[in-house]
Simulated assay, not measured.
Amino acid sequence: MATEPAQGDPGMESMILPVISCVCSELAEAGRPVCCCAWYRGDGHPPADNCSCTCEDPQWHDAEGQGIAWARVVSIDNVADPIQPRNSFGNTDCSVPPPRLRVTFDVGIYRCVPVGAPESGPECQEHTQTAADGAWDDLLIRRAVWCCAPLEGRRLTFVRQVPVGPSGGCGGSVATWTADWHASRETAS
């Protein structure tokens, strides 16, 4: 007997899912679509493998493009340290809104990179073209997140962007951001 999947955190979903959508839309509009756009959960970046040089694998559902894009929540931190009343059992009073939180999140993209011949690796021009394509993806990711409408009013801050790989024939980059999130406002709807 199949069961319905458990509900997630609607507040967090209202922030991260639009980020993924903004990034994948920006990539597609620039003519650089990916096969998969996903919310990844883990204590590190997803493995830089299986980035799909084509979208022919049935798991991509006839997508067009190359590679994968993903978002990951790195941490959720308290921005302020408000006094939270306690009831007689020592529990937090649930009628008091939770503090404003700061979410640190990563947005990444992995694409296929040339591996060349086993004895020599990629040619010089392949390295240069891969770097240029990666720089274009970097720009598109930054622009997509910065201009993503659902992040307006969240004190969005760009932290850094770093290259990843190559590993397993894949390489790319990861951009880290912070944004404010007020749990009570977002989970009440």
Rank of each mutant, 00 (worst) to 15 (best):
137 D>R: 08
101 L>G: 00
90 G>F: 14
186 E>I: 10
133 D>V: 09
121 G>L: 06
149 A>N: 06
172 G>L: 03
116 G>T: 02
110 Y>K: 02
103 V>C: 06
162 V>F: 02
82 P>C: 08
127 H>M: 11
79 V>Q: 10
155 R>F: 04
78 N>L: 03
140 L>D: 07
79 V>P: 00
88 S>H: 13
184 S>H: 10
181 W>K: 04
96 V>H: 09
78 N>S: 12
180 D>H: 03
163 P>Q: 10
79 V>N: 03
113 V>S: 09
81 D>F: 05
189 S>N: 15
142 R>W: 10
144 A>Y: 13
151 L>K: 05
146 W>L: 09
138 D>W: 15
154 R>L: 10
93 D>M: 09
132 A>S: 14
149 A>H: 14
149 A>T: 12
185 R>F: 11
137 D>Q: 07
151 L>I: 08
86 R>A: 09
127 H>F: 15
154 R>W: 08
171 G>V: 00
81 D>V: 14
104 T>A: 02
136 W>Y: 12
90 G>I: 14
165 G>M: 05
152 E>A: 15
162 V>N: 07
161 Q>T: 14
88 S>G: 12
91 N>R: 12
105 F>A: 02
88 S>V: 13
101 L>N: 04
98 P>L: 00
185 R>S: 15
78 N>V: 07
136 W>Q: 12
81 D>N: 11
133 D>T: 10
175 A>R: 00
105 F>N: 00
103 V>G: 01
92 T>Q: 12
133 D>A: 11
94 C>M: 10
184 S>F: 09
92 T>D: 15
120 S>I: 05
130 T>M: 15
177 W>L: 01
117 A>K: 13
120 S>M: 05
142 R>I: 10
122 P>M: 14
90 G>V: 12
187 T>K: 08
106 D>F: 05
171 G>R: 03
140 L>M: 11
158 F>Q: 02
177 W>R: 00
135 A>V: 04
88 S>F: 14
121 G>T: 01
120 S>E: 09
139 L>G: 07
82 P>R: 06
130 T>A: 15
172 G>S: 02
89 F>G: 07
123 E>Q: 11
107 V>L: 07
